[in-house]
Amino acid sequence: MATRMTRLLSDSRTALFTMLGIQAVIWSVQVLNWLDDYGLSREFGLRSEQLGDLPEMFTSPFLHFSWEHIEANSWPLFVLGFLAAVRGMQKFLLASLVIMVSGGLTVWLLESSNTVTAGASGMVYGYLGYVVLRGLLDRKVLDAVVGVVVAVLYSSLLIGVLPVAQGVSWLGHLGGLIGGLAAAVLLRNRTPGPVAPAPASASASAPNSPGTALLKQLDDLGI
């Protein structure tokens, strides 16, 4: 149990510093962008239907069009990104890549011609979908509870995947959400395959092992 708790604390610390670093980058870029009259957003934002702009799907999440824009995205990005990263950086990075590609391709394929899209909101929706569905698929009580709480607290965000607000990239939101759900499925914990039966002498002593029973209970709790 001590080992599991130590690992959880270590992963939480790594996730915290990761999200603080991402926030530092986004806000530093925002200052430069503001000084440049948001020229960075116009130059490195994602333009639909232009093949040469496809790489901008990896830069547009770090750019915004106003202080209000970045303020609206920062807090949910930090919270949901932390929850997405707390179970391991490798899965977090892969999930982030899937979300970027899914959201970027959705905008590039379906957004109005020559529209420039930028902002971290697609990542917010992606992490939302990833955290909620991961909790259900991994069958860990702790992750499932976190997923349910997140779904309740952020359910109002789902209106953002509908074309109801002027000047908001609902396609980016929808593509990000789809990417997050896909990442949860692709990166879910796989059920171990069947284990060959142990010799009779070993299996006879297994039920009497309190350590084995304790580890199984902790695993079932998602700790």
Rank of each mutant, 00 (worst) to 15 (best):
T14Q: 09
F17R: 05
T18D: 00
M19C: 00
L20T: 00
G21D: 00
G21C: 01
A24P: 10
I26V: 14
I26Q: 03
W27C: 03
V31C: 06
L32A: 15
N33L: 03
D36F: 09
D36Y: 13
D36A: 14
D37F: 14
L40W: 13
S41F: 02
E43L: 05
F44I: 05
F44A: 02
F44R: 00
G45S: 09
G45L: 06
L46N: 02
L46K: 03
S48C: 01
E49Q: 15
Q50K: 12
L51E: 06
L51A: 15
L51K: 10
G52I: 01
L54N: 11
L54M: 15
L54A: 15
P55Q: 12
M57F: 10
F58Y: 13
T59R: 01
S60Y: 08
S60I: 01
P61Y: 08
F62E: 02
F65D: 08
W67N: 02
E68K: 03
E68A: 08
H69C: 01
I70W: 08
E71P: 00
E71W: 14
E71F: 15
E71V: 14
N73P: 00
W75I: 12
P76K: 00
L77K: 00
L77F: 15
F78V: 12
F78H: 08
L80R: 06
L80V: 13
F82P: 09
F82K: 11
L83N: 13
L83H: 14
A84R: 12
A84K: 09
A84H: 14
V86W: 04
R87P: 07
R87A: 07
R87T: 13
Q90E: 13
K91P: 08
L94G: 03
L94S: 08
L94Y: 11
A95E: 06
L97G: 13
V101K: 06
G103C: 09
V107Q: 09
W108M: 10
L109I: 11
S112M: 08
T115V: 12
T115Q: 07
V116Q: 02
V116G: 05
T117I: 13
A118C: 11
A118W: 07
G119V: 05
A120L: 06
A120Q: 02
A120N: 02
S121P: 01
M123S: 12
Y125P: 08
G126R: 09
G126A: 02
Y130T: 05
Y130G: 05
V131L: 07
V132A: 09
V132Q: 09
G135D: 10
D138G: 07
D138K: 10
